[in-house]
């Protein structure tokens, strides 16, 4: 495992911890999109189908369990926890899941490396992860006051994607790593979705202002 991959995974882990910290400690999920969280739960559930049948390393299994556990517990908190659910911006979080899930599923049926159940599900999870942040970005744009933790959560998620691209470039040159165009293209699309957010994040950081996205 190279340094970019490890840094990417740790950034991903940090993003989840920041979100859990906000929800668990402050008992608030204001500004967090439940739609995006449900999509991530679906992404991990469909990607890690072989978690107990295909062993890679203890690190790998542990991280998979963390991502599965954290995504489902965040969804549970936002839907069921009697205090946390009150802070959910339901009226603002209106993005339709199905507009993302259905096209991703159809695309996975058509464009995949092997037409098997596991492979189609794995491909679907890659396509869905690429666009799963969209409801969150739409919600951020509608929310006038983005709190620090929510801003950091999205920033860390975007950072994780950027580091994965460096990881693929590194692997390409050092390991004769087989190029999976599906992984590369959906990963690139996903990272580009954060470009706009990054621009305003750095802008507010540089000027020491509160993060606000233009309407």
């Amino acid at each position: 495992m190279n340094i970019f991959r490890l840094a990417g995974d740790m950034t991903h882990l940090a993003s989840v911890l920041v979100l859990l910290l906000k929800i668990h400690t402050i008992k608030s999920c204001a500004g967090v999109s439940l739609k995006t969280q449900e999509l991530y739960a679906l992404v991990f559930a469909t990607r890690y189908l072989d978690i107990f049948t295909h062993f890679i390393s203890i690190y790998n299994t542990l991280m998979k369990l963390i991502f599965l556990g954290s995504s489902f517990s965040i969804v549970w908190y936002m839907r069921r926890h009697k205090i946390v659910r009150r802070s959910y911006d339901k009226e603002q979080d209106t993005f339709r899941h199905l507009f993302l899930i259905l096209p991703c599923f159809l695309l996975a049926l058509v464009i995949n490396e092997r037409f098997t159940f596991k492979e189609v599900m794995w491909t679907f999870s890659l396509y869905l992860e690429a666009v799963a942040i969209l409801p969150q970005l739409v919600l951020l744009q509608r929310t006038r006051n983005i709190d620090n933790l929510t801003g950091q959560y999205v920033f860390l998620l975007g950072g994780y994607r950027a580091l994965y691209i460096l990881n693929w470039i590194y692997r390409y040159f050092t390991e004769q790593h087989f190029v999976h165009w599906i992984t590369w293209i959906s990963g690139l699309v996903q990272t580009l979705l954060y470009a706009d957010f990054f621009y305003y994040y750095f802008h507010s950081w540089k000027n020491n202002e509160k993060l606000q996205l233009p309407a």
């Binding site: 991959r5 991903h12 790998n60 998979k64 991502f67 092997r114 994965y164 790593h177 087989f178 992984t183």
Partner: peptide
């Protein structure tokens, strides 16, 4: 196999 090597990623 080459198809599996990318699946060591999360």
């Amino acid at each position: 196999s080459s198809n599996d090597d990318v699946k060591d990623e999360l």
